[in-house]
Amino acid sequence: MPERKVIVESQVGLHARPAATFVQTAAKAPIDVTVAKPGGSPVSAKSILSILALDVRHGEAIVIHAEGEGADRLLDELVAIVSAP
């Protein structure tokens, strides 16, 4: 299962607009996508409530997993969203 570990660069963390953009991008893909804090339980990257409940803040790391055709491309898109300041 392809995965990426990335540091959240947005000043608001993975909340508000960055979270919405992240979820919308994940939801467009017909494959399973999860996100977790390192060592934590993964949640669906397609659920805004699950993403917000992770309480990911600026400077924290997350691990994004995707499984299926196009997983690497989708992961690259999601990393770009999370890496943007």
Rank of each mutant, 00 (worst) to 15 (best):
P42V: 03
M1K: 12
A27F: 04
P85D: 05
K28N: 15
T25W: 01
R4M: 11
D76Y: 03
A19Q: 03
E60D: 06
K28M: 14
L75W: 04
E67K: 13
V63M: 05
I48F: 06
H15W: 01
V33W: 08
K37C: 01
K37H: 03
A19E: 01
R4S: 10
K46P: 11
P42S: 12
A27T: 14
L75E: 06
V23G: 11
D32Q: 13
H65N: 13
I48D: 07
I7F: 06
A26L: 01
S41F: 01
E69H: 14
S41M: 05
V79N: 02
V82K: 02
I81R: 06
S47G: 03
V8A: 10
S83D: 09
Q11D: 13
S44Y: 03
E69L: 13
T21V: 15
F22D: 01
K46S: 06
E3V: 12
V33P: 11
Q24F: 00
V12R: 10
R4H: 06
I81K: 09
V56G: 13
R17I: 10
L49A: 14
R17W: 07
A53G: 12
A27D: 13
R4F: 04
A45N: 03
A27H: 09
R17F: 05
Q24G: 13
R17K: 12
V8K: 11
V6D: 08
E9V: 10
K28L: 15
I64E: 01
S83M: 08
R17E: 00
K5G: 07
L54K: 07
A66M: 06
V35K: 06
Q11L: 14
R17Q: 05
E69K: 14
S50A: 15
R4G: 00
L78K: 03
F22V: 06
E3P: 11
A71T: 02
E77A: 13
E9D: 06
R73L: 14
D72M: 12
S47L: 01
L52R: 10
A80L: 10
A27E: 15
I48G: 07
G40I: 07
G59W: 02
P18S: 00
R73P: 08
P38L: 12
K46F: 05
Q11N: 10
V79Y: 00
P85K: 12
E3K: 14
V35W: 04
V63F: 04
S50G: 14
V43Q: 02
I31V: 15
P18D: 04
V23S: 10
V6M: 07
V79D: 09
R73K: 14
G40K: 07
V56H: 08
S41E: 10
A71C: 10
M1H: 11
V43R: 05
A66I: 04
S41K: 07
H65I: 09
R73A: 15
T21S: 13
Q24Y: 02
K28G: 15
V43F: 06
A84E: 11
K46T: 09
A84Y: 00
R17G: 03
V79E: 11
S10A: 15
E9F: 04
P2S: 13
P30I: 14
V56T: 12
I7L: 11
L75P: 09
A20P: 10
S47Y: 08
I7K: 15
G40N: 06
V43A: 02
A36K: 05
A53N: 11
S10R: 14
S44D: 08
G59C: 05
V8L: 13
T25Y: 00
L52F: 11
V12P: 04
L52N: 12
A36E: 08
V56I: 15
L54R: 02
P85S: 09
